[in-house]
């Protein structure tokens, strides 16, 4: 049978997957977008949803993000099509970084974002659906936004949402050097205790959370490649599947399988 060809391909593809994982892991620093160090333009909030801590940063300093991110084509940018209509993100993978351009400023206070705004950001991030975007009169229509296009907007808000452990140090996120002694838990606690806004956000977000999307979000960070044990196990499973296919073929016709592998290792003769 032709199963050996499929098996070989699957094994080769799993090797490609491993290489891609390795490259992506090595490239991790290049993709880091945690270095937002312009406090005056950054608002942050942390909240505890369903036992998981979410840490969000809203920034209008998109240029520094772009600079650090290093990719003018902005593949992570997603579009908001029509004001007021339901809108979605591409995939949960991309739910981590939102860039929203507007001609009008979204009301915010330094150090804290207005709850309504944050609420919507989080809603977008977690449920993949924006129900109301009418606070932004200017809407980005393009599939991708070029840097030039971004500058034509008066304000561009960038939201980065992390899913973190309560014990993670803020310093590790490398977002706000001045707060590096705090654990995320502290930030969350203070947010929950000290602000009516946080509770409001929490309640509102929880209502809109689609449980389905929470799990995948847990492991993914923009530009952050986690070579998790699961990924390794899956790679092994896929490679095993490939081997199994070859073995099935080998049982049926050992000679053909041997011949195929001879063909693979031997140089083509032009006699």
């Amino acid at each position: 049978m032709m199963l050996r060809y499929l098996g070989m391909l699957i094994i080769m593809l799993s090797l490609v997957g491993i290489i891609a994982m390795a490259i992506a892991a090595v490239q991790k620093p290049e993709l880091t977008i945690y270095t937002l160090n312009s406090p005056s333009t950054i608002a942050s909030i942390a909240s505890n949803i369903g036992g998981k801590t979410y840490f969000a940063i809203v920034s209008i300093d998109f240029k520094s993000i772009l600079k650090n991110y290093g990719n003018p084509n902005l593949p992570y940018v997603f579009s908001l099509e029509v004001s007021g209509s339901p809108m979605s993100l591409n995939t949960p993978l991309e739910a981590k970084l939102l860039i929203i351009g507007t001609y009008m400023p979204v009301p915010h206070i330094t150090g804290a974002v207005k709850p309504q705004v944050m609420n919507r950001f989080l809603t977008v991030a977690y449920s993949n659906i924006i129900y109301e975007v009418n606070i932004m009169p200017g809407i980005i229509i393009d599939l991708r936004i070029s840097e030039n296009k971004l500058t034509s907007y008066r304000y561009v808000y960038m939201v980065i949402i992390y899913v973190v452990d309560r014990n993670t140090l803020v310093r590790d996120l490398n977002v706000m050097p001045s707060q590096n002694l705090y654990r995320i838990g502290h930030v969350v606690d203070s947010a929950l205790n000290g602000s009516w806004a946080a509770n409001g956000i929490l309640n509102s977000v929880m209502k809109n959370i689609d449980i389905y999307y929470i799990n995948p979000l847990t492991f993914r960070f923009i530009g952050y490649i986690e070579v998790s044990r699961d990924a390794v196990l899956r790679t092994a499973a896929v490679a095993f599947l490939g081997l199994a296919l070859i073995f099935i073929d080998y049982k049926r016709d050992p000679e053909a399988v041997k011949e195929t592998f001879r063909w693979l290792v031997r140089r083509r003769s032009n006699r």
């Binding site: 490609v16 891609a20 994982m21 992506a24 591409n90």
Partner: peptide, 13 residues
């Protein structure tokens, strides 16, 4: 597949 593998990590769209 190599391109796609890389894209899945770096640029899903």
């Amino acid at each position: 597949s190599a391109i796609i593998s890389y894209a899945f990590y770096s640029s899903p769209s």
